[in-house]
Amino acid sequence: MPASTQLGSQLVDLCSVLLLLCCFAIVAQRRLSACVDLFALQSAFLAATAALVAFLTGHKHIYFAAALTIVIKVIVLPRILRKVIERLNVSRELGMNINIPAGLLICGALVIIAFFITQPIIPLGYLLTRDSLAIALAIILIGFFTMIARQKAITQMVGFLVMENGVFLGATAAAYGMPLIVELGVFFDVLVAGLIVGIYTHRLQDTFDSVDTSTLTVLKE
């Protein structure tokens, strides 16, 4: 493969790896606000990856998606979440179902699983982004894991958003981005989801004096 493509694909790999690293940082975090910051950072890396792919392939519409990512995921959503945290006086510590070292180990295993699952289809992908597919899958799995392992509603939102980032990366990697209209729809969805979770957290706080979702178990009576 020509040197420029190799360099390009290495850069894409590097960006994707940084995205994945952000996931691990989120799992390793104890403070709620830091989780949100890390999510913003991850989204910034995502935008960078998308822009890089756009530049290297010449698919102009990916630029647009990257810009949207910056606006919505780097600026708007973290702001909403931060406001929720601030307004509700949520305690800084995260509630954990699984402690940090165990969580990290599980995430490490998830990465390995993701690579194994995607191994057969990796050679079929585009040369430039084929490795990112495995990383995207790993990010989705870790996002899901975060939703399970952390108790507070806001961390679950972060987990969901991380999953969404993974999906976006996967789409960029596998198909050089979704059609514009789909992308717009997804972004709108995410925004709405963010708002809904914001409101839901408020209600949770009102009813239980806590944003710990494990308090919801009392509803089964």
Partner: peptide, 23 residues
């Protein structure tokens, strides 16, 4: 231990990436 656990995970990822990311 959490910090060193993170270091372990990083080194594990290094290994995984060495084998899987062909660039």
């Amino acid at each position: 231990p959490e910090m060193l656990g993170a270091a372990f995970i990083l080194s594990l990822l290094a290994l995984v990436f060495f084998y899987t990311l062909k660039g």
